[in-house]
Design a protein around this nucleic acid. Structure first.
Lengths: 127, 127
DNA sequence: AAAACAATTGAACAACTGTTCATGTATAGA
DNA sequence: TCTATACATGAACAGTTGTTCAATTGTTTT
C-alpha cells in the first residue's frame, strides 16, 4: 500500500530555484557563526545593556584585553558591533536593532526547549 | 581636559551581575553555531518553504545523502528541525517559529550592511 | 523472507577557529 | 617630546568541526 511520501514527487535531481541570494546566505552564515561562540555572545549580551569599552568588557569577564579585543574584532567584521572613540577609551555598542532581536530570539528559543530530548527510548514509542 | 570615558567608571575588576543564565547562553551559542554554516543554513532556508525529506534535500543541493543526513543531525541536536516518518521517507521541518524568525532576521541584517565598510580612511572622518 | 530503498551512524582526516603572546599603534597627560 | 594608557594585530599552537566512506538500521515491496 502506497503511503504518502514527500511532496508528490519522484526526486528529480535538478536543483530548485534559489530562495535567497548566495551572498545573503553567506553573510547570514557568517553572522551566525560570529554569534555562535559563548565568549563572543556574552559580549554581545553585555552590550545589549548599553555600550562599554574594551577594558570594561575585559574586567567583567576577567579576561585579558587582548583576548577581548580579538573577539571584538570578529564581531566587528560581521557588523555586529560598532566602535567609537571616547577620550582614552574606545566604546563598543551593538550595531543595530537586528542584532538585539536576533539575540533575544535565540535566547527565547534556547529557554523553550526541554533540555536535549534525547529520545527516551521506551518500547514502541515511535516518533 | 577630561573627556567622558565609559560609564562613569574606573574599571573595577569585579564581574557584573549575570544578565542571562549560563545555560541559556550556552544553548543560544550552540543554536547560532548550528546555523552558522552555509550548507546547514541552506537546508534551513529550504525547509522554511515547507517540509522535505532527506533525498529531496540532497537532490536540491546535489550532495550525498550521508552528508545531508549529518547536517540534519546537527540541526536536530539544536532543535532547529524536527522529523517525522512518512512512508519510506522521513520528512524534516523547522522546529518552530523562532527559527524562522531568526533566519529572516539574519538575512535582513545581512542585506542591510553595505558589503564590508572597511572604514574608508579619509582625512579626519572619525567614526 | 529476501531484495531494494531511505536514512543514520562511527571513525578518520583535513580544514577551520579560538586563545595566547609579543609586538605595534594611537591618544592623553606631563 | 617622552611616558603611560588603551587597544589592535600577526603568528603559532591546540582544540573543534565538517566531510566522506563504510557499515548499519528500519521500512516497503515482491
Amino acid at each position: 500500500m502506497k503511503v504518502p511520501e514527500c511532496a508528490g514527487h519522484d526526486h528529480p535531481k535538478g536543483r530548485r530555484a534559489r530562495l535567497v541570494s548566495e551572498e545573503a546566505l553567506d553573510r547570514a552564515a557568517r553572522l551566525f557563526r560570529a554569534l555562535g561562540e559563548e565568549s563572543r555572545l556574552r559580549i554581545v549580551v553585555a552590550l545589549s545593556q548599553g555600550e562599554a569599552c574594551v577594558t570594561e568588557l575585559a574586567g567583567a569577564s576577567e579576561e585579558s584585553l587582548s583576548t577581548v579585543s580579538q573577539r571584538l574584532r570578529v564581531l566587528r567584521a560581521e557588523n555586529i558591533v560598532v566602535r567609537r572613540r571616547a577620550g582614552k577609551h574606545i566604546n563598543y555598542a551593538l550595531a543595530d536593532a537586528h542584532v538585539t532581536e536576533l539575540v533575544f530570539n535565540a535566547l527565547a528559543h534556547a529557554s523553550e526547549v526541554p533540555a536535549r530530548p534525547k529520545a527516551v527510548k521506551k518500547k514502541s514509542t515511535k516518533e
